[in-house]
Design a protein around this nucleic acid. Structure first.
Lengths: 208, 208
DNA sequence: CCCCTTTCCCGTACGTTGTACTGAAAATAG
DNA sequence: CTATTTTCAGTACAACGTACGGGAAAGGGG
């Protein structure tokens, strides 16, 4: 009983293809033309499934954020761990998140669980929302750092080469003794244990 | 004794004009053509002062970050307060910061002071850098939230109208009782006191 | 059966962006 | 003067998001 011409794809498929492109080549590589080519479709056909590119990214975020109630707990530490895994699996997520009003069912589901986890605190609603925003920001910062360190030099060997060269030049002036000490350390970037830091952040945010 | 044709502007002037545009109309409004018009210059003339647009933004960040040793202290809380003031004065800063290798003198100066503030901890260098990245991320998140709340509806009244409408629709399904409670609260967004939260974040990050 | 309506497909085209290329313009050095 | 060096800026191009409009493919009603 669907009246018109049958769709060649589904919205879910289109968004999934977009996620695949972003996962493999980054958000910058995700253009409407690229996505159309991936689906063997015309560029403008995509706009049947998506209002505009911003809407596409919104849906990507929401589709990523499907929650498996079997595998994850529901306290704040569990939720934060879950966010970290999402961001590790989809490195574009930390950059895509800011300045976005997310109203998809999965994001609302997350928000609901997070608010439930904060319910025992009895804090006012605005404070709860603020705590969650700060926690998400913290995870995004942490994972960004983590990812940057993991693929240091893998993608842009010359770009970071230029970076360390500038740092060496600055240090050579003698104006930055502390920075010099850090660069001279050559430490293998110790494991900081996400859980430990996250737990302290949560405690710090709640003890107010 | 400078040999060639004398420059019509200085790099500092160009960057200052860019900062003025971004302050007044946001980072998106800052295009090379707009900046050229602001300076009564040809578009391509800008490229004598700046390698490319990314370099321009780098320089904007660094020029913003000039430090007045008279007015600010040198412990971590002071530094974080200073970052917040910067971001409040230049709302584009939180969005411009991520994915940037900052090697300007002012940013290195900040880094040096921050590392000095962390020196008594005896932590390894990599951990210090991570702590500073997390603190900056925290401030960016906090200020973004702060700014979003300050001008809620001022710029895009219909955009956030659509947002609350979607939220109301979601709540109406009854699937999100906690969210419903928060939206029903209608609280005037209590003062959270940046200093208090920042202090707890610092303590949390250092007690590791 | 044909036609109408509905829905999706997608080629063309436009405005905007960053910037490569090129050469003219304006200063000094000899 | 000429030669050199540096900055200025017009033109032009590729890539982007997407508005527009018409063609294509289905079902419903006569």
């Amino acid at each position: 009983m669907p009246r018109g011409r049958p769709p060649k794809h589904s919205r879910t498929q289109v968004v999934a293809a977009a996620i695949a492109v972003a996962d493999a080549e980054g958000l910058d590589a995700l253009t409407m033309r690229r996505l159309a080519a991936e689906l063997d479709a015309g560029v403008m056909s995509l706009y049947t499934y998506v209002r505009d590119k911003d809407d596409l990214v919104d849906q990507m975020v929401d589709q990523i954020s499907a929650f498996d109630p079997e595998r994850a707990g529901t306290d704040l530490l569990d939720l934060v761990r879950w966010q970290r895994q999402l961001m590790l699996r989809h490195p574009w997520l930390p950059t895509a998140l800011p300045n976005r009003q997310l109203t998809g069912p999965n994001m609302l589901g997350y928000l609901e669980r997070a608010l439930a986890a904060l319910a025992p605190t009895g804090l006012p609603g605005g404070t709860k929302m603020e705590i969650l925003a700060l926690l998400t920001g913290f995870v995004a910062s942490y994972v960004s750092h983590e990812l940057a360190q993991a693929q240091a030099g893998r993608t842009d060997p010359e770009r970071i080469a230029a970076h360390v060269e500038q740092l060496q030049a600055a240090v050579a002036t003698g104006a930055y003794p502390e920075l010099a000490r850090v660069l001279a350390e050559n430490a293998p970037a110790a494991e900081p244990s996400f859980d430990a830091i996250a737990q302290r952040m949560i405690k710090g945010l709640l003890s107010g």
